[in-house]
Design a protein around this nucleic acid. Structure first.
Length: 288
DNA sequence: GACAATGTTACAGT
DNA sequence: CACTGTAACATTGT
């Protein structure tokens, strides 16, 4: 997914194009994706879009909201008279709607919001606005790196909190920073790149890291997330922005995905191992 | 065919 | 309770 920079990219796009629109109807082509009663939101108007970690919230003006998680392969694509003229990513979207389109939100003035999802892991839930943070995925979400604005009131990942978290955990550092209950928003691409940038071996135990190493990782996390955001996200699998266009970070990863290639820092071969079930790339020479 | 893929959760085991 | 590993969800690409 869509990790924090990708979801933030979507959020900004939805804010620009969706706010002010009324939801007239929802075509549910695949029921597994949609939870709740669509009658609760018909003719409601979108007032704002929020982000909680890798989750999205579409706020409505009738006391309800839509909580969204696009998991690995979800897409939210907005089309109206104007944006229909923009070309969508030929490779990641093709035509719209397509065989992976599972929900179509019919908006006023003929605008539409499409939810596509190749693997159908994602979900969209109708929830009362004042209960949305009770959803397990949102309730347990850890503090947010401060590169992008999250929902008001969400805790921020300060260096002190980060230091406290790492120094008290016996877990391996890479799965720890990817644990959404510990930190909201970091996934496999940015975890790999942040640890490479900080020159830390992803297999290190968190509580073995020195104070200055922790500070380096903290800085590196913010640097790579910001870079991801500046590139409009990473379109490694199927991610596209709200206009259906590719992001650029996948072309600029530091080490993620470079299996069999050489380290950009020292030229030695990049190692690939599995840590916590996830593909992990690192340079034995540079990351200690 | 085998294996891997930006995520999350449930469960079994240590 | 803390932590690790595995499978599951479904599909595509190498």
């Amino acid at each position: 997914m869509p990790e924090l920079p990708e979801v933030e990219t979507l959020k900004l796009g939805l804010q620009k194009y969706l706010v002010g629109h009324k939801i007239l109807d929802i075509d549910i082509l695949h029921p597994k994706i949609f939870y709740g009663d669509k009658a609760d939101i018909l003719s409601a108007k979108v007032t704002d879009i929020k982000r909680v970690g890798k989750g999205l919230i579409i706020e409505l003006d009738n006391g309800f909201c839509l909580a969204i998680h696009i998991k690995l392969t979800g897409q939210l694509i907005y089309r109206d008279l104007k944006t229909s003229k923009f070309a969508v990513s030929k490779e990641k979207v093709g035509t719209i709607p397509n065989k992976f389109t599972h929900l179509i939100f019919q908006l006023d003035s003929g605008a539409k919001l499409y939810y596509n999802d190749q693997r159908r892991f994602g979900w969209i839930k109708v929830v009362k606005s004042n209960e949305v943070m009770n959803l397990p995925f949102f309730k347990d979400m850890g503090p947010e790196p401060s590169v992008a604005k999250a929902l008001e009131g969400r805790p921020i990942l300060t260096l002190e909190k980060f230091r406290d978290l790492l120094s008290k955990s016996k877990t391996i550092v890479k799965p720890l920073i990817m644990d959404q209950k510990k930190i909201g928003g970091i996934g496999n691409i940015y975890a790999n790149d942040a640890l490479f940038l900080a020159r830390i071996d992803p297999r290190r135990k968190a509580n073995s890291l020195s104070s200055s190493e922790i500070k380096k990782i903290y800085g590196a996390i913010h640097t790579v997330l910001q870079k991801g955001l500046d590139s409009g996200g990473a379109s490694e699998l199927t991610f596209v922005n709200v206009l259906g266009q590719d992001g650029g970070y996948q072309k600029h990863t530091l080490i993620y995905g470079k299996r069999g290639k050489v380290c950009p820092n020292c030229g030695k071969e990049i190692k690939f191992v599995r840590i916590g079930g996830r593909g992990t790339y690192y340079c034995e020479n540079c990351q200690k």
